[in-house]
Simulated scan of single mutants.
Amino acid sequence: MHEHAYGPSETGSVVLDLGGDTGALIVYTGRDLHGREIEISRGDDRRVHSAVRERRVRDGVLHSAVYPDLPGGRYTVWWDESTPAGTVSVHGGSIAEFTWSSRGFGAKA
């Protein structure tokens, strides 16, 4: 697990290029994971990571890791090096969501 100190991300500062077989994933977390890098992988593909950042949006503040430009498929979200937190399907042209919380994990349909 890696951690970094990133400033907040303002509304409209993340651009997602969706279409064809390309989608995106947002992993929502609590404030306690701010700066933590969360890894994901598709099948046997190598893992990629994204840092949890504070996101200031129209309706308030949330914490999330954003994975843009993902090929469609089933992804594993990793809790640590060897423990999966769960799986989520990414579809081309859309944004998949996964909720990571102290009460449990799960994909939003």
Score class of each variant (00 low, 15 high):
Gly72Arg: 08
Val90Arg: 07
Thr99Val: 14
Phe105Thr: 04
Val90Asp: 04
Trp78Gly: 01
Glu97Pro: 08
Ala85Asp: 03
Ser94Cys: 07
Glu81Lys: 00
Phe98Val: 01
Gly93Cys: 12
Pro84Tyr: 08
Ala85Trp: 05
Val90Leu: 10
Val77Ala: 06
Ser102Pro: 05
Trp79Asp: 01
Trp79Thr: 11
Trp78Glu: 06
Phe98Asp: 02
Asp69Leu: 15
Arg103Cys: 00
His91Ser: 14
Pro84Ala: 04
Gly93Val: 09
Ser89Ile: 00
Leu70Ile: 03
Gly86Asp: 00
Ser94Leu: 14
Gly73Leu: 07
Ser82Pro: 00
Tyr75Leu: 02
Gly92Val: 11
Trp78Pro: 01
Arg74Ser: 03
Val88Tyr: 05
Gly73Arg: 04
Tyr75Thr: 02
Ser82His: 10
Pro71Phe: 12
Trp100Tyr: 11
Val77His: 05
Arg103Trp: 03
Arg103Met: 07
Thr76Cys: 02
Tyr75Glu: 02
Gly104Phe: 08
Val90Gly: 06
Thr76Ser: 01
Glu97Trp: 14
Ser101Tyr: 05
Val90Tyr: 06
His91Gly: 05
Phe98Ser: 04
Ser94Glu: 14
Ser82Phe: 08
Ser101Gly: 13
Ser94Val: 07
Ala96Gly: 02
Trp100Val: 11
Asp69Tyr: 15
Ser82Gln: 11
Ser101Glu: 03
Gly93Ser: 12
Ser82Leu: 08
Asp80Lys: 04
Ser82Asn: 12
Trp78Val: 06
Arg103Ser: 11
Trp100Glu: 05
Leu70Pro: 02
Asp69Phe: 15
Gly92Ile: 11
Ala85Met: 09
Asp69Glu: 15
Tyr75His: 06
Thr83Lys: 14
Gly73Phe: 05
Gly106Arg: 04
Ile95His: 06
Gly86Glu: 02
Trp79Pro: 00
Gly104Ala: 08
Phe98Tyr: 13
Val88Gly: 02
Thr83Ala: 11
Trp100Cys: 11
Asp80Val: 10
Ser82Arg: 12
Pro71Gln: 14
Gly72Thr: 13
Gly72Ala: 15
Ser102Met: 01
Ser89Asp: 14
Trp100Phe: 07
Pro68Arg: 15
Val90Phe: 10
Pro84Ser: 01
Ser102Lys: 10
Thr99Glu: 09
Ser82Ala: 11
Gly104Cys: 09
Asp69Ser: 14
Gly86Ser: 09
Ser89His: 08
Trp79Arg: 12
Val88Arg: 03
Ala85Asn: 07
Ser102Cys: 01
Arg74Glu: 07
Ser94Gly: 10
Pro68Gln: 15
Trp79Met: 09
Glu81Leu: 06
Arg103Gly: 06
Thr83Tyr: 07
Pro68Lys: 14
Glu81Trp: 03
Pro71Tyr: 12
Glu97Tyr: 15
Ser94Lys: 13
Ser94Gln: 15
His91Arg: 14
His91Tyr: 13
Gly104Leu: 09
Gly73Val: 06
Arg74Pro: 00
Ser102Asn: 03
Ser102Tyr: 00
Ser82Met: 02
Arg103Pro: 00
His91Trp: 13
Val88Glu: 00
Gly106Leu: 07
